[in-house]
C-alpha cells in the first residue's frame, strides 16, 4: 500500500570509461506520488561510484553531501540545545518552588 505512494531505490547508470578505469555511478532516489496521479515529488541524489581498475581491483567510493550533513547537524544541535535548556530551566524552577515552600 505504502509502496504505491513512496518508493526508495538505488539505480546504476551506464559505466563511464575514464582512463584505465571503469566507473559505475549509483544514484539513490526517493519518489513520493500523490494519490490519483495528481503529481508527486522526486528527490534524486548521488550515492556512490563503483570503480573497477585495469588491474581488476573493485571498490566503492561513497559520495558524501557535506553541505546537507552540516545543515542537519546544525538543526539537530539546535533542537538538542533547546531540549537541554528546557530541562535546566525546569530544574531551576522546581528548586525555586521547593525553596519557597520551605
Amino acid at each position: 500500500m505504502l509502496g504505491r505512494f513512496l518508493q526508495v531505490e538505488t539505480r546504476a547508470g551506464d559505466p563511464i570509461r575514464a582512463g584505465d578505469s571503469t566507473i559505475v555511478p549509483l544514484a539513490k532516489s526517493l519518489q513520493i506520488r500523490l494519490p490519483g496521479g495528481r503529481g508527486g515529488l522526486i528527490w534524486n541524489r548521488p550515492a556512490s561510484v563503483a570503480v573497477q581498475t585495469a588491474g581488476g581491483q573493485e571498490y566503492i567510493l561513497p559520495i558524501r553531501d557535506i553541505t546537507r550533513q552540516v545543515q542537519f547537524s546544525l538543526y539537530a544541535g539546535s533542537l538538542l540545545g533547546v531540549f537541554l535548556m528546557w530541562l535546566l530551566m525546569r530544574r531551576k524552577t522546581k528548586r525555586q518552588a521547593e525553596k519557597e515552600s520551605e
Binding site: I16, A18, I23, P25, L34, R38, G39, G40, L41, I42, W43, N44, R45, P46, I63, D65, R68
Partner: peptide
C-alpha cells in the same frame, strides 16, 4: 565528472 542533487515537485488538478 560533476554530480548534483535534483529535487523535483509537480502537482496538477
Amino acid at each position: 565528472i560533476p554530480t548534483a542533487e535534483v529535487l523535483a515537485g509537480l502537482g496538477f488538478g
